[in-house]
């Protein structure tokens, strides 16, 4: 078996390696490539059919007036769908505002909530696993079932308002009141933040004890220890939670769809997405409405591409910005 030894001065990272002297480069046989392709083919075909083709197709449709189910000739309209979105659609901008509200409020609140619950749980001496399981359980509930449960729980004369009534508080309309509908969804998001809490909990337990002991010797209080030791140590998890939360919330759909749909009246095909008063009209629900209620496939495809570009841009900015606040043990980034 031929071995090569790196010369002095070569680095593993960037330096070019020279082939070992006297060794002839062997061409891989064509037969081997076919075998590799054969084994890869299920993945390649699946990727091409179910990912690449739809991506390219939506880009194409976004430049046309295509409507699903229509026999009208499909016309190339250039950037007209994009222009209409920016200049003539109030609902588009409303959905952008509603989505940004959720991104700005729900993502940090959910992260802080998961972090706090994890912090509390890690400080519990007895029965920690029981509490952790109890907090984690709701995240195993299917999204639709969870949303339906909250519709019952947050009914204006439902259990929560009855409890509030006992202490003399008149509960709000929650999902039926435009002022309360988005905060109610945030409340629901806190209920299902168990998986993030588990990751935070693991990260907190992973912080070296010696650091806290040293801080104790220096006379640091709990808050100082949290700020100077725990927070930097768990910053990669905060970063992960914020980034995944950001991407998820930009595409926020199911909960809003269920809540609006179930809070709505009659006619099965004529659901008023965004109910009440369009306060729950998020970007993805507006996209769905345009594509599957109004059948404007081209227009909805343009919306999908804008969403993709927005998420991509925000993710890149966030990753770059994270270098300032994320601390990795050993200094790696």
């Amino acid at each position: 078996m031929a071995t090569t030894v790196a010369r002095a001065g070569d680095t593993l990272g960037g330096a070019r390696r020279r082939p070992a002297e006297g060794r002839r480069r062997r061409r891989p046989s064509k037969t081997r490539w076919w075998v590799v392709l054969l084994f890869l083919s299920p993945f390649v075909i699946g990727l091409a059919t179910f990912v690449l083709y739809p991506v390219v197709a939506t880009l194409y449709y976004s430049l046309t007036n295509f409507q699903a189910g229509s026999y009208r000739p499909v016309r190339f309209v250039g950037l007209n769908n994009y222009r209409t979105l920016f200049t003539r659609s109030d609902d588009f901008w409303l959905s952008v505002r509603n989505t940004l509200w959720m991104v700005i409020v729900m993502v940090p609140v959910r992260t802080v909530w998961a972090m706090l619950t994890a912090w509390v749980i890690t400080r519990v001496k007895r029965g920690r696993s029981v509490y952790r399981t109890l907090y984690f359980l709701p995240s195993m509930v299917p999204v639709v079932a969870g949303a339906l449960s909250f519709i019952v729980l947050l009914n204006p004369v439902g259990p929560l308002n009855k409890l509030l009534g006992l202490v003399g508080v008149s509960g709000p309309g929650w999902f039926s009141d435009p002022a309360w509908s988005k905060p109610s969804l945030v409340l629901m998001a806190l209920w299902v933040s168990g998986n993030t809490m588990v990751i935070f909990s693991a990260a907190m337990l992973d912080v070296p004890r010696e650091l806290y002991e040293a801080a104790d010797l220096d006379g640091a209080g709990p808050l100082r220890k949290f700020r100077s030791i725990t927070l930097p140590a768990i910053s990669p998890v905060i970063y992960f939670s914020l980034l995944t939360g950001l991407i998820y919330t930009f595409q926020y759909f199911t909960e809003a769809f269920v809540v609006s749909g179930s809070s709505n009246v009659e006619s099965s095909s004529n659901q008023l997405l965004g109910y009440p008063a369009n306060s729950l009209l998020f970007y993805s629900t507006e996209l769905y409405r345009q594509g599957f209620s109004y059948f404007k496939t081209g227009y909805a495809s343009a919306m999908a591409w804008l969403l993709f570009l927005a998420i991509f841009a925000v993710t890149v900015v966030f990753i770059r910005a994270s270098r300032r606040f994320v601390h990795y043990s050993g200094g790696a980034r």
Binding site: V157, S262, E266
Partner: peptide, 11 residues
């Protein structure tokens, strides 16, 4: 009215 409407949604 808000309370009434919220209470009976869905109808």
């Amino acid at each position: 009215v808000q309370k009434f409407v919220g209470q009976y949604q869905p109808h």
